[in-house]
């Protein structure tokens, strides 16, 4: 596989906030058309990595490429970014928020945009609430609007920072069904998460800890690496954490 086949390519990237090293010589590569999961505890560096991939931050050292290009500028239109906090305009309605981001991401044709906004609202199951202000929604509903804003322009790459937090199991399953559909259409999805339920849906995973990738591969490979036949992903993660800690001692 050549570099050009990857949707996301991170090579020896480090990032420092003041003195705090949030990413430490991190490398990973996500091929196109799959769901790639970033798994790791609080403070592992998942959000920092995603912010590097959307071009909000520049790596202190190393290199970051998305869709074969350096993040930022015009290529930003090809990415759908969902920040960890639901970032929405509180006074505006559900539909107005989604329509605004559709415009910002270049959907100029009005009837086509209206159709796309409608489809996206229905997809996140908020059609009845489309006229409501964001401040009238529940936490999970805000999360859904936030996701809608990230996917409304049909980008080939989605960078989703904990998109399933606060969703009920039914919606979560629905979302994953949609993500899998997108994958089949060639869309690459990079997702950060804490939950092993999300992890099980991914084609490939990277376990991240203290700004480093401690293991990566398919869920099956990672489970197998523990050496126990009935290990789940949780056990696999702990296995790699322990292995990592032994290295340091």
């Amino acid at each position: 596989m050549t570099v050009n086949d990857s949707a996301v390519e991170v090579t020896n990237a480090s990032f420092v906030y003041g003195k705090l090293k949030a990413l430490d010589n991190l490398s990973l590569s996500a091929p196109r058309g799959i769901s790639y999961g970033l798994l790791g505890p609080n403070g592992a560096g998942k959000t920092t990595l995603i912010r590097l991939l959307v071009g909000l931050l520049k790596p202190s050292t190393g290199e970051v490429r998305v869709l074969g290009q350096t993040p930022g500028g015009k290529m930003a239109a090809q990415i759908g970014y969902m920040p960890q906090q639901p970032s929405l305009y509180q006074e505006l309605s559900v539909a107005q928020n989604i329509d605004f981001f559709a415009k910002i991401y270049g959907l100029k044709d009005k009837p086509a945009r209206a159709r796309r906004v409608e489809d996206t609202i229905k997809l996140v199951d908020l059609w009845e609430r489309r006229g409501d202000g964001i401040n009238k929604l529940s936490g999970g509903m805000k999360q859904r609007v936030s996701l809608a804003c990230a996917i409304v322009h049909n980008p080939p790459l989605l960078l989703l920072d904990e998109p399933t937090v606060g969703l009920d199991p039914e919606l979560r399953a629905g979302f994953w069904q949609h993500f899998r559909n997108l994958n089949r259409q060639g869309v690459t999805i990079l997702i950060s998460s804490h939950t092993m339920d999300d992890a099980a849906h991914c084609d490939r995973l990277a376990f991240i800890r203290k700004g480093q990738v401690i293991a990566s591969g398919t869920p099956e490979e990672l489970k197998k690496a523990t050496g126990k036949p009935d290990a789940d992903l949780e056990a696999a993660f702990l296995h790699f954490v322990r292995r990592e800690d032994k290295k340091i001692v």
């Binding site: 909000l56 239109a77 970014y81 920040p83 906090q85 970032s87 929405l88 509180q90 981001f101 910002i104």
Partner: peptide, 17 residues
């Protein structure tokens, strides 16, 4: 200020704007 604190500025900065 609210654009900054509610995170929508981050969204704008990540967009082609």
């Amino acid at each position: 200020l609210r654009e900054r604190s509610q995170g929508t500025l981050e969204r704008l900065m990540a967009s082609p704007v």
